[in-house]
Design a protein around this nucleic acid. Structure first.
Length: 491
RNA sequence: GCUCCGGUAGUGUAGUCCGGCCAAUCAUUCCGGCCUUUCGAGCCGAAGACUCGGGUUCGAAUCCCGACCGGAGCACCA
């Protein structure tokens, strides 16, 4: 879709060229906190980074920023969910890094910064510090010499202080005009064990995001960073670390927040709670904006990639409709999806004067995919919605079967009036679909609730495929058995 | 309060750096029509935008200033 830009520098539709990018030398990363599965929001980062890496034949890294065992506590299953979803999206990383495995690395640089006099252990309460910082005043601990700081730091590491007692701060510029930059914290004490068993209670001192990210981006050789606008200050903050350590800062880009019209505000933690309370069936509930839900519903990764790439990397906050994603998906799926009849809210319709026969509707109106076959005796099932619009004397076409005329509404009764298909338009005959009375029960789970009805038996052969239920919409067949469960994709 | 960022049709984007070829691109949505044994697909057509006000200039969506609106940071969250 995006052709190789190494050979040609001309921008292709979609992503703009990366500033200062050299073919084969680009290293990019995306750095989620695995405190839940990837959502459509995180997917943007996965897709765009991977697309750039493909473009420049670079290296893609996934880095789990799981250095908060407390507030945004990682979820053990989520690490694999990310890897799994990345693979599904065609964004398999070349390298996987887990921050909680690399704490000693961060300690090493912390020590160096303390020794150089660029960091200090601060014992202020957060409130006291904030008050001083807001008026550009240094706190009393700022002047401590490196030896003192090293001693305090070692005590922190040894667990001699409790959470909130002490924090390691980077000496930036206490008079910086932007208060967000002034002597920000880089390590704090957390005594809660980490969820990963290999880490557990190994550490009581944890790095904060800007420090951990700064060190990692350098260590991993990151050349280009794309991050959310909410992290815009990070570059200014981290540049101090880079300066002290004599490193060169990567190129950065930012993007605004993405909201989907269909999904209100959602945070991983609120979703998590709702799931635990049983409000949703799980992280792949069709009402959820998670990648797992999209996948289960039959949204294809190619559609998601295209959708994300066309959105680009603008700094404006966007609020986009799922319809756009559905449109991409429909283009891919429509020629592939076999057609079947699914009748929701089924009503029995007896037909007088019809010979038993076998209907042979095509599996696809234009693609050559063969036929289904459905045996019909003297009655069929039709949707209640359709029945409600009928009157005595209504002449309708049962799609791919024959024509009937309604002779009575209660009880519902029709009679066979022929097979002629030529004059359907001229006679303004309504065409409705139907299902055999001995069909198979079908349950469709959709973002708007559940639909129950009867479908053709052959649907059972489409496990895990996306099909189209005629006059209903596309669905992915999730399970087959005495009942078929389908997940609604889109219209 | 301090600091930063953004504002092109309903939605998302192109163009903004290096002013003219922009009476502004593409996609989606919506509305007409055609086609079709699906309310799907396809085809044709239509509608729809440079936040506002100043300034610079022969000329501004593009540069400058101001206002307004929106988002974000100032956490011992990421």
């Amino acid at each position: 879709m995006i052709e190789n830009m190494c050979a040609k520098k001309e921008p292709v539709k979609g992503l703009k060229p990366l500033e200062g990018a050299e073919c084969g030398k680009v290293v990019m990363r995306f750095a989620p906190n695995p405190n839940g599965p990837p959502t459509l929001g995180s997917t943007r980062g996965i897709v765009v980074n991977s697309e750039y890496v493909k473009m420049y034949e670079g290296k893609l890294i996934i880095r789990f920023d799981d250095t908060d065992p407390q507030t945004k506590r990682p979820m053990l299953e989520a690490y694999d969910w990310y890897l799994d979803d990345c693979k599904w999206l065609g964004a398999e990383p070349d390298q996987v890094v887990i921050a909680s495995d690399r704490i000693p690395l961060y300690y090493k640089y912390a020590r160096q910064l303390i020794e150089q006099g660029n960091a200090y252990v601060c014992f202020c309460t957060s409130e006291d510090f904030k008050n001083l910082k807001d008026i550009s005043e240094p706190c009393p601990h700022r002047d401590a010499n490196p030896q003192e700081n090293l001693m305090h730091w070692d005590k922190m590491l040894a667990g001699e202080y409790e959470a909130k007692d002490a924090v390691l701060r980077l000496k930036t510029d206490i008079k910086h005009k932007d208060p967000a930059i002034r002597d920000y914290g880089i390590f704090r004490i957390v005594k809660q064990p980490h969820p990963r068993p290999e880490v557990d209670s190994k550490y009581v001192v944890w790095p904060l995001l800007d420090f951990e990210g700064a060190i990692e981006d350098h260590e991993l050789g990151t050349t280009h960073i794309i991050r959310g606008k909410d992290l815009m200050d990070s570059e200014t903050r981290q540049t101090y670390i880079y300066k002290y350590l004599g490193w060169k800062y990567p190129k950065t880009m930012h993007w605004g927040r993405v909201k989907m019209h269909e999904f209100g505000k959602f945070s991983t933690s609120t979703l998590r709670r709702a799931i635990e309370e049983g409000e949703y069936s799980g992280w792949d509930d069709p009402r959820l904006p998670t990648l797992r839900a999209m996948r289960r519903r039959g949204i294809l990764p190619q559609a998601i990639r295209k959708f994300m790439i066309e959105m680009g990397v603008g700094e404006t906050d966007v609020s986009i409709s799922m319809d756009t994603l559905y449109a991409e998906n429909r283009k891919i799926i429509d020629p592939l999806a076999s057609r079947y009849f699914f009748v929701w809210d089924p009503v029995e319709l007896p037909i007088a004067g019809a010979q038993p026969r076998t209907a042979k509707p095509p599996k696809h109106p234009t693609e050559n995919k063969g036929h289904r076959s459905i045996d019909v005796a003297d009655k069929v099932l039709v949707c209640k919605d359709d029945v409600d619009q009928l009157q005595v004397g209504s002449r309708i076409r049962l799609k791919d079967l024959y024509n009937i005329e309604i002779t009575s509404l209660s009880p519902l009764q029709a009679s066979y009036i022929g097979d002629e298909v030529a004059n359907l338009k001229k006679d303004r005959m309504k065409i409705i679909h139907w299902a055999p009375v001995n069909g198979i029960p079908v349950r469709v789970l959709s973002p708007d609730g559940e639909f129950k009805g009867i479908g053709e038996k052959l649907i059972s052969t489409e496990l895990d495929k996306v099909v189209q239920f005629e006059r209903f919409g596309f669905c992915r067949i999730d399970s087959v058995g005495s009942e078929i469960v389908a997940y609604f994709t889109h219209k």
